[in-house]
Design a protein around this nucleic acid. Structure first.
Lengths: 343, 343
DNA sequence: CTGTTAGCGCATTCAG
DNA sequence: CTGAATGCGCTAACAG
């Protein structure tokens, strides 16, 4: 089955290629009624479909953007992708999603691949491990937006959660309900991932505000495989925490596994709040109190910033960091005891 | 920042375009050592990156395949995608994933878009709503593989689960543990989705084998929003089921919500088995017995079939339906009572 | 071993 | 209102 091209259509309709092109691009104004009909008919009869590759080559744009996520396993990532797709769809853009698996190598490979594919711009959850590459994109003015994480020293528009606030919301909530031995568990800080650092610092500041002591034993920050054993150590200390903040959904899963294995009772033995609105938060027993990110709005914002940048109307040459506000969703994983805490 | 092309490289290295092209495609054999060095140097200095779009236009292949999934919300879909990506990555293919949201309209739009983008082949979870389109692809011999679902009357290679077996595994397990009032809940059958039909028929056959009566009241098959109320009706009947098979992970979520709202106790009041290995099956209390699909193998198989078809070595012109075997993962959501059931 | 040539399928002047 | 001509960046003969 031979590919049919514009030329075939043109021949069959007895017009020239360019007339067909006009038709395809909706410039009917300059076209005889009957001509249009003929073209229409020819296209239908031949079942012609334009070749986007050729068009892109000519137009020097692909109407496609690339999205590179650090880790597809985070529910936040998948939700943001959906939002980005929605927006792109509305703007007649296509999206190619790649998963860097938190490996800078892969991230680099994908960025290069997507640029070679001539995508018009990139939204990335940066691993933080490719400073040169980021910088070179900035230098060449390549449309780029970071989301979820930012990279110190790299001037790129970023869409972030107010992470300190997210941690603070949780700590405040614990304190209001009378908790004082509040721990936090997060995935590894080695790569200086923005949200993790900020959530931890938000946690610290909030404790300080409430005049609570800061104990290193109450902080677990290690790679996912080691969280369980770190929790084990934490809970065999003489005065283990009675409340735990899981800084993201993966950490939350680890905590829940640990809770299960050790038959801890939520919220009586340990109160729990997770950041990210896990799919089963409302199904688990007890239902889980969570801090929710406005994922849809964040994805939307990122896409819109990118479009502005692509369309060159980024009048304000300066980098914008956009913060979104988290929200607590109260459920049952924190005891409603009357507090002896502050406030 | 002007785009630099092969020509720029050629000039700077004092060779012609084609020599550069040779270099890029690894045909160094016919090339002077110094020439190669010069080209290498020029490329590095200019930070040249080839334009894949132009190459694709010329080569009439994009080294890219498209994947259209029916519903991204099913964990099965996301797992299969990961598998497909892995395999494609190994074969130096790229993947573009689109989510049809179970809407034939969207599916159609995406198939057309991907073909216009000249992808070399398509793996699709068919919605079943675009018979003409599927058929036309078959007619024009377009590389295509269905996964998860097949479409009656359309001769396309398909990778499927042995769905009847999956349902049978669950029913057998229930019966062995003494259950006789076994219900099933699945999402809507309206569109004749293969796995749902087959799982239901597997359920029926298994009941029959065990000489158990088939009651319509024990079957919930409706769209997701109405599952909850259907369950309500089921459980207010005079003799409600004491065991429930959730035919996929979305149905399982609905069941769990219902269980929670009505404070049913698993497994004492209701035993539960879900098809699809939900992420929190081992964390839920009690842990959930599930029927697992070999998602990785299935994705891999689909990709491999597609490559064969793309590379034209699909010697056997006949359509192949490939079935994979499900496996039961025993956990705690079924009571270990001694059975009065058969066997 | 290297350069010349001719398109891939389309969009876009610019004349008619 | 329509058609002829040009080139996007690259590959692939085919000559040197």
């Amino acid at each position: 089955m031979k590919k049919i091209t514009m030329l075939d259509v043109a021949k069959r309709a007895n017009v020239s290629k360019s007339t067909v092109s006009q038709y395809l691009n909706g410039r009917y104004d300059y076209m005889g009624e009957k001509t249009r009909k003929r073209i229409e008919k020819a296209i239908a009869e031949l079942n012609y479909q334009p070749n986007i590759v050729a068009r892109s080559l000519k137009q020097k744009r692909t109407s496609t953007i690339g999205v590179i996520i650090a880790n597809i396993l985070h529910s936040f990532s998948t939700e943001v992708i959906r939002a980005i797709e929605d927006i792109c769809h509305q703007h007649d853009y296509h999206v190619i999603v790649c998963n860097a698996d938190d490996e800078p190598e892969k991230e680099k490979k994908y960025i290069e691949m997507l640029k070679a594919k001539q995508v018009d711009g990139l939204i990335v959850f940066p691993t933080g491990g490719n400073l040169d590459l980021y910088q070179s994109m900035v230098s060449e003015n390549y449309p780029l937006v970071f989301i979820d994480r930012s990279v110190p020293g790299i001037a790129v528009d970023s869409v972030l959660l107010n992470n300190e606030k997210a941690a603070k919301l949780a700590v405040d909530y614990f304190v209001q309900h009378g908790y004082e031995r509040i721990g936090i568990v997060t995935t590894s800080l080695l790569r200086n991932i923005t949200p993790r650092l900020e959530r931890l610092s938000g946690y610290r500041k909030a404790l300080e505000e409430h005049g609570l002591p800061m104990k290193d034993e109450y902080i677990v920050a290690t790679q996912i495989e080691q969280i369980s054993s770190a929790l084990g150590k934490m809970f065999t200390s003489e005065s283990p925490p009675d409340a735990l903040l899981a800084a993201n959904d993966l950490a939350l899963m680890e905590v829940l596994e640990f809770v299960k294995e050790n038959q801890l009772e939520i919220p009586n033995q340990i109160a729990l709040i997770g950041i990210d609105n896990t799919a089963f938060a409302h199904i688990y027993s007890p239902t889980l109190t969570t801090i929710k990110q406005p994922t849809f709005e964040m994805g939307k914002k990122a896409a819109e910033r990118l479009f502005e940048s692509i369309e060159g109307k980024s009048t304000s040459k300066q980098t914008v960091i956009c913060r979104f506000e988290p929200e607590i969703i109260e459920r049952e994983s924190v005891k409603k005891q009357l507090g002896k805490g502050s406030d």
